[in-house]
Structure formats: C-alpha cells, structure tokens
Amino acid sequence: MTLEFEYSTLANLEDVKRFGKILEQCFIGTPADENVYINKIGVENFRVLHQQGQVVGGLAHLPMAQWWGNQKVPMTGIAAVGVAPEYRGTGAAITLMRQTVQELYAKDVPISVLFPATQRLYRKAGYEQGGAFCSWEIPAKSIQLTEQPLPVVAVPFELELFNDIYQQQAKLNNGNLDRYKAIWQRIIEPDEKEATYTYAIGSADYPQGYIIFSQHSTEDDAILRVKDWVVLTAAAARTFWSFMSNHRSQIDKVRWRGSTVDALTLLLPEQTAKLKFTNYWMLRVLNVVKALEKRGYPPGVEAELHLEIQDDLLVENNGKFILYVANGHGEVTSGGKGELQLDIRGLAPLYTGLFTPLQLQLAGKLDATETALFAATQIFTGTSPWMPDFF
C-alpha cells in the first residue's frame, strides 16, 4: 500500500505532541524524554509527514559541519527518524527521506550523515557507509603507564574553551564533527543516575587536551566511561593513560570512543585494549560539485580525475565531471572522459576514504580505468573516517 503524504515542518503544538508520541514508541522512551529531545534539537529543525491531516512520521535535521581533509564541509545530520507503527510499510519512511534529500539539496547543503537502524531504507535515498563509530575497552590494571608528563586539573566546563581544543583535534580526523549544540549538551549534561567529571590536560595558558568522563557500577564491574577526550600532543596522550591507570584501585574497565585503528593504543605496553563494538554511519553526497570542492585534499597531490556519476533522485548530480586537485584544494568542471563510473551511493565511501578505490571496484561499487584508479587513490587518501559522536 502506498499513500499520499504531505511533507512539512512541525507547525503546531498538536503536531509536536503527536510526533513526540511516535518517537516515544519508536525509541522506547517516555513523553518527558521526547519533549526534552525535541526542545534541545529545536522544533524548527523537525520535519514531519501528514496523511489526511494526521502526523504519521518525521525526523530531525541537525545543521552542522564535518571535517574532511582539514576543511569543514557543511553537513546536515539526520536523526530521530520515526514512523507510527500503523503507517509502516506504506512508503512513509522512504517518502520522508527523499523529501529531506531534495530539501537539503535546494538549500545547497553538500552532504548529509545519519546512523542507520536499517541500511536498506537509507540506501534507497542514496546513502552509503561513510565511516566508523567505535567503542574501545581496556582493563584498568593492564594500562601500566604511570609516568604523567603533564598536570591534570579538575575544571568547570566552558563551551568556548573546550570547543576550541576539540576543533584542533577534530580537523585532523576525517569524519569528526563541528558539533551541533545538542551534541555538546549530551556530553556535558549528566542524567539523573550519573555524575560527569571534567579535567583539563596541561597548563591553563597551554591546554593540550581534556577528559570528560562518568563512572558506573554494574553487577560485575566498575566502569569508567570516557564521554569525550582530546589529546593534542604526545605528552597529553601519555598523561591520558596515566590518569586512567590511576583509577585502577576502584575501576575495573575503561571505555572510550575512537577510530577502528586508534593511535592511543600504540602507547600501551600490551594489546589489552579491545574493540567493544563497531558500527558504521552513512553519508549521502547531496551536491556533487559543492561536496568535492569544499573538502580538503592531500597538499602534495596534483591530479585530475574524470568522473561519471548517476543519481536517481537528484538529476542535477548526473553526468560527467572533472575533479582537478592541487595545493590541497579541488575544482570541479563539467565534462571529461568519465573514466571512473559510479552511482551516488558508490561516491560516498570514495569521498570519505572508508574504502580504497580498488576495494570499491572489487565490490562492484565503481568501474574505472587504471589511470583513474591511481588518480582517485592519490586524491582520496587520508585518515580512516570516524567520529566519537552518535546522533
């Protein structure tokens, strides 16, 4: 069954209440939880579908940016995608996503990112795996790094200061966010069952990182959960571990979020840190030209890549493009030989560097000449894409 739907903003209090009930049921929450969430994100950032005047589903837009090649690319995160159970299977969810993609394109947003509950739905709207969201765990007693090169000082959280420190690290890691305000709030605001502790690494005039964490007791273990962290120097990295080790008399395990290949683990004496889980977020290139021109590239690379792209939803992205890269920047023109052919979904993991061009070709996600594969490998090389934030 396919119904006719109307896509719009949240227009009135009754619609807000109705969508709050849908979210409550979709995400096993409470009315209070969903009201707080809607207010934090901002009512103006929600979109809903109506069917005969009734709200049947909706989602949230999170306007922010993402770091790619040391450059911030404007990005809209998609969150809280929910459809009332009685309207599932009617085409509501894919209608919601396609309308969102078209709206964001009309607003000149280059890329969009989301965390999928199911990949099939979002692939129909042009999204594909873009990067990793990982949690690591280590027994506190196995850290065994006691030297602390820098001071660690308990400090009150100041958004401007902490965001400045965070951005210095984020710009070096492909996929890290220029965070939306609600993401910062989730990090620093404790729930009723936890306390959050905030420490600065280094001196007040030269901060070299920070640690924000909470502590939890389970039936079996005491867990120190690092909610957010930054280390900007080798000394800060060693200090991070010595500070974690100092909790070993009361804490059994330390958990933190990092990349699938996390440089922090290289400092450990043994391979006792293990990935607890790995999920992949999905990215959609909304505007081919803007997405390719706004990201950064390796500064020593000068190369030309001839692309041919197919996008079944946004016809403006269809056709042949030439990407010319030099001095860390890219310029896109129409035309060319179309030596690397792919659809908009295949472009996502190429753009992010989650997989190499050769891997994508072997997976059937692109078809390219040897020359184009070499150029694409040079152009899209970089750190493995990841982010520590879930939305």
Score class of each variant (00 low, 15 high):
Thr146His: 09
Gln51Asn: 15
Val109Asn: 07
Lys141Thr: 13
Glu137Thr: 12
Leu104Tyr: 01
Pro110Gly: 07
Val48Ile: 15
Ile138Gln: 00
Lys107Leu: 15
Thr76Tyr: 10
Thr30Ser: 14
Gln52Ser: 15
Gln51Ser: 13
Pro31Thr: 08
Asn70Arg: 15
Leu121His: 03
Gly29Pro: 08
Gln54Lys: 14
Leu121Tyr: 02
Ile78Val: 12
Phe115His: 14
Leu145Thr: 09
His50Asn: 12
Ala65Trp: 03
Thr95Pro: 05
Trp68Asn: 12
Phe133Asp: 10
Gly69Ala: 04
Pro116Leu: 08
Gln71Asp: 08
Thr30Phe: 03
Asp108Ser: 13
Ala92Pro: 07
Pro116Phe: 05
Arg98Tyr: 08
Val153Asn: 11
Tyr37Gln: 14
Tyr127Gly: 06
Val152Gln: 03
Leu62Ile: 13
Ala140Met: 04
Ala93Pro: 00
Val36Pro: 03
Thr95Asn: 11
Gln71Phe: 09
Glu86Gln: 14
Ser142Val: 00
His61Trp: 11
Phe133Ile: 15
Val73Tyr: 02
Thr30Gln: 10
Asp108Leu: 10
Ile28Gln: 15
Val48His: 02
Gly69Cys: 02
His61Lys: 13
Phe115Ala: 15
Val83Cys: 10
Leu96Ile: 03
Pro139Val: 00
Pro74Thr: 03
Leu104Pro: 08
Val113Glu: 12
Gly91Phe: 02
Leu59Ala: 05
Asn70Gly: 11
Arg98Asp: 12
Ile38Leu: 14
Tyr105His: 13
Glu44Lys: 13
Ile38Arg: 01
Leu150Gln: 03
Ser112Cys: 09
Gly77Thr: 06
Ser142Leu: 09
Ile111Leu: 10
Glu137Phe: 00
Gly69Pro: 01
Val152Arg: 00
Gln52Cys: 11
Val36Ser: 15
Gly42Ala: 07
Leu62Pro: 03
Ser112Trp: 01
Glu128Ser: 10
Val48Asp: 07
Val73Trp: 02
Ala125Trp: 01
Lys141Pro: 05
Gln66Tyr: 06
Thr118Cys: 04
Leu59Tyr: 02
Asn45His: 12
Met64Tyr: 08
Pro151Tyr: 04
Tyr105Gln: 12
Ile38Gln: 13
Trp67Glu: 03
Glu86His: 11
Ala79Cys: 09
Tyr122Gly: 09
Leu114His: 05
Met75Gln: 12
Val113Ser: 12
Leu104Glu: 08
Met64Ala: 08
Lys124Ile: 04
Lys124Cys: 10
Gln66Arg: 08
Ile28Cys: 13
Gly29Tyr: 05
Val36Cys: 14
Phe27Glu: 10
Ala140Thr: 08
Met64Cys: 09
Tyr105Leu: 10
Gln99Thr: 10
Glu137Arg: 09
Tyr37Leu: 14
Ala84Arg: 02
Ala132Lys: 07
Phe133Gly: 08
Leu59Asn: 07
Gln129Glu: 15
Pro74Tyr: 02
Leu150Gly: 04
Glu147Arg: 13
Pro110Gln: 06
Val73Leu: 07
Val81His: 00
Pro110Ser: 06
